[in-house]
Every structure is written in structure tokens, then in C-alpha cells.
Amino acid sequence: MKGQTRPPVTQETLLTKVAFNVNGKGQELQLDPRTTLLDALREHLHLTGSKKGCDHGQCGACTVIVEGRRINSCLTLAVMQQGARITTIEGLGTPDKLHAMQAAFVKCDGYQCGYCTPGQICSAVAMLDEIKAGVPSHVTADLRAQPQLTAAELRERMSGNLCRCGAYSNMAEAITEVGRTA
């Protein structure tokens, strides 16, 4: 495995072993414990689809799905993800075989520069599951009722993913389309 050889193991470097599953494939890495999950993916496994926009949990570009839940991969250490099942944008679909959410983003032009896009898509996929699971949001009127995929719910729940190009309105259409048929 190509990524495992970097960074080089020097005598002074205290490396910690971690194993997890990324997109269905087991990965075992020796990492500087300071390595975030995001940097492990991007710099060690060369899965650069997850983006670093802020590295401080302020933009959502690094969103990946861990154990079925979306998280900011910049704010967790790789060594904290021992045994975890991780899905990144590369695990959802490929250019030749797009995931339904990826296809809907293309169709609805739910992106411009493309940098926030993988995070938006991972977030949207997991967000639809959160609604199904009955997780309430800030705009859920009745806390005890099953939340619905309304425009307001979708926009509130996606608010942890910034898009400076301002493709929000189109993303809402893409996500609604997928949510309705899912």
C-alpha cells in the first residue's frame, strides 16, 4: 500500500498504529498521533476528495461518514477512529458510476468551484438518514413528530456546509429530488 510508507518512520518519531475501514477497504496506518482523520485520508491514503477548507470545524468541506454518521474529519484524530467504518466521497460513486446524490448535484448544478461539493454530498446523504431516523432539527415544529424533508428542514440541516459560490438554492433542489425518491 503506497500511502503507508509516508511519512518516513524516523527513530525520533513516535508513531501510533491505527486500523480502520475506508470505503470498504481495510487500512492500517502508522501515524503521528497528531494526524487528523482528514489528513490521514488526504495525505496518507491520497483520498483527496475530502477537502480542507478551514481545518477548524467551521466550513464542513471535510465531511465524511463514519459509522453512518456525518462528521467533520478535521476535528477528530485518526487514532481515535480505531476500527471505524468510514465512507468518503470516493466511496459513494465514481465519475462513471455516480451515486444518486452526485448525479443530482450535476443535474441541478448544485456546485460551482467544486471545493465544498464532496462535503456537501456526504453531508446530504447522511442528513437524509438523520431525518428518517427521526432526529429533530432547529426548525422542527413538533419535537415529538417524525420530521419531514421540507425546504426549511433541509436548509437548516445542511447549514454546517458552507458554499461561498452560493449554490445553495440548486443544492436544495438536488437533495430534495434524491430525498423524494429514496
Binding site: 488526504r42 491520497h46 483520498l47 483527496t48 476528495g49 475530502s50 477537502k51 480542507k52 468518503t88 466521497i89 470516493e90 459513494l92 460513486g93 465514481t94 465519475p95 462513471d96 455516480l98 452526485q102 448525479a103 448535484f105 450535476v106 443535474k107 448544478d109 456546485y111 467544486g114 471545493y115 461539493t117 464532496p118 454530498i121
Partner: peptide, 21 residues
Amino acid sequence: VDRIEGPLKTTGTARYAYERH
């Protein structure tokens, strides 16, 4: 028409400046 680079951007396979492994 849809953006021609759409499949790359939406799958995380478009390479940005810091990603040139």
C-alpha cells in the same frame, strides 16, 4: 447543459492545488 467537469467535482476526483500527489 451540465458542467462537463461535474462528474469529477462531485466524486472528489478533480485535483486541486494541494492535492497533486
